[in-house]
């Protein structure tokens, strides 16, 4: 592989994986629509409703959320030059969790997705302002620490609220573990604009993010306004993440393992990592959702559990094979 450029082979593999995952997602489900009837278009009204009003939006939402979380994860790792960064680093998950919990407990003041979105963006904005006010505005360490503090604080508030409203435990818990099980076109419409903007910004700045890898001062010397770039990329990634969690709850692990798996397999330039993370992130989450709804079908497994359960061993496998290949 040549450093820095995305080979056609990998691009084709990414697109192929995503298309295959989407088709699998459409074909598999508890309603058990026979593939023959599907291809010939001989479906009952009920089967049509299942396919187009339930399965199709669910699969598409999974792809959007997976692509957004993976590309946001890669963006965060780029601007923080930190391999452990994920889309929830600056408190997006904790803020969304608090927002969702408030919406569930004091139902009616805001729809849940809006409350989660506001919580996520609010938390990251707060962490960013806090980090800037205590740091010199340039280093990433103070920003990360501000994010950690913000996340811990908001999680504590959320837990307190949960503890005092135990009758809502199941609803809150179910949201925290992520869900695509009741999604429709409405949710797809909610997420799509943010996902597109977030992914487009990350892709547009992929070259500058590569330059950023050499260090803040060096990038500065090369004429890049580092602070502005960081703010822009964090902003776009956060919008995407907030929309994703608003529609589907907290789905962990996608934002961290997909970019790393891509990096290990296809190369570490962000011109490679960002587009491939998007494609493989979409494929991964759609397939994880297929597992979530078929493993115990017709019962559902929380998708957050599936992404971690499949993701962790899968990631270790990639880590091992890539190290063996390097040795």
């Amino acid at each position: 592989m040549t450093a820095g450029t995305l080979s056609w082979r990998w691009l084709a593999a990414g697109v192929g994986a995503m298309v295959a995952a989407l088709l699998t997602g459409l074909a598999v489900g508890p309603a058990g629509i026979p593939p023959g009837a599907l291809i010939e278009g001989r479906l009952s009204p009920l089967q049509e409703a299942v396919l187009w009003e339930l399965r199709a939006p669910r699969v598409l939402l999974g792809a959007l959320v997976g692509a957004t979380l993976a590309s946001a994860g890669a963006s965060y790792q780029a601007v923080f030059r930190n391999p452990l960064a994920d889309p929830y680093l600056l408190g997006a998950a904790a803020g969304a969790g608090l927002g969702a919990t408030l919406a569930i407990v004091y139902g009616g003041f805001l729809p849940l997705p809006l409350a989660a979105f506001a919580g996520a963006t609010g938390a990251v904005t707060g962490a960013y302002l806090l980090g800037r006010s205590v740091g010199d505005g340039r280093g990433t360490a103070t920003l990360i620490l501000a994010g950690v503090a913000m996340a811990a604080f908001l999680t504590a508030l959320q837990t307190l609220l949960l503890q005092q409203n135990t009758e809502n435990v199941r609803a809150i818990y179910s949201w925290l573990l992520g869900r695509l099980s009741t999604s429709g076109w409405h949710e797809v419409g909610l997420v799509a604009p943010y996902a597109v903007v977030s992914i487009a910004v990350a892709l547009a700045y992929r070259r500058l993010l590569d330059v950023l890898r050499v260090g803040d001062q060096e990038a500065d010397a090369l004429g890049i306004r580092v602070g502005r770039l960081r703010l822009l990329v964090i902003g776009a990634a956060t919008l995407g993440t907030a929309a994703a969690v608003a529609a589907s709850g907290l789905i962990g692990f996608v934002g961290i393992i997909i970019p790393h798996a891509v990096r290990l397999l296809a190369g570490s330039s962000f011109r490679v990592v960002l587009p491939l993370s998007m494609l493989f992130g979409a494929a991964f989450l759609v397939l994880a959702d297929v597992v979530a709804r078929t493993l115990l079908s017709p019962a559902e497994l929380p998708i957050g559990v599936v992404t971690a359960c499949i993701g962790a061993p899968f990631f270790v496998l990639i880590l091992r094979t890539s190290r063996e290949a390097a040795a």
Partner: peptide
Amino acid sequence: PQLSSEAVVA
């Protein structure tokens, strides 16, 4: 158990 929309509709 938790069901999906699809499971209930089906």
